[in-house]
Amino acid sequence: MGDILLHVKDVHKSFGGLKALTNINLAIEQGTTHAIIGPNGAGKSTLLNTVIGRLVPDSGSVMFGGRSLTGLKPFEINQVGVVRVFQTPEIFPDLTLLQNVMIPALAKKEGSFRFNAFASLFKDTDVRDQALAMLEDLGLAEQKDREAAHLSRGDKRRLEMAMGLVQRPRLLLLDEPTAGMARHDTNRTIDLLQEVKKTGLTKVIIEHDMHVVFSLADRITVLAQGTIICEGTPDEVRGNPKVQEAYLGGAHL
């Protein structure tokens, strides 16, 4: 057993009468890739949103490296090293790719606020180099001076991945990283994530595509109707009859 990096304890969240999350307990080990799967409306995105500070749980706590994330603002959560990659690409559409990646690199370097109106961006060579290297890694370097709005959807996702990875996060949360992608792009994303995995980065992936999940995950948690119905290694989950019944239906495997 490695160290626990993210610890979700007894989290409850309801919207009006709807219980979105009931008694969620999760322990994500350092260096692992943990997939959260489940049918639509199972509460996957709600769970993710409680981790990144978009939602505050009704009760329970989210601990990250021994520190509570509950009640922190999204930018504070980013500053402790939790980075989220969104389901629909969230980028800065009017800025160039290089600028898009430089901004998170600056955030990592500067903290949440710094008044540096008279510093020259061109002299910030380390930030620039980091951003360029990241674009290079993701095969976007040739387009670095393009406006991000003009990218293809697949490239936008890779750009967002670059924006996340350039911060060298301690925990990367990926919300359906391959949703809406063609098979070819999906495989490229899997390759990329496997590459990232070698660096020992801890990841939580929410995903529908079982091919992606079973190619990447060390552990899988299955959510249904706001509760965890099963957790274990891919093989354990694959063999679990409850999971088969609730979600997988056998056919997907």
Binding site: I52, N78, F92, P93, Q99, L106, A107, F113
Partner: peptide, 19 residues
């Protein structure tokens, strides 16, 4: 650059670690 980012996508900036 950060000010431009606010105009471009303020929510994204929030999740990028800037206030």
């Amino acid at each position: 650059l950060k000010l431009r980012a606010i105009k471009s996508n303020q929510t994204r900036l929030l999740y990028t670690g800037f206030n």
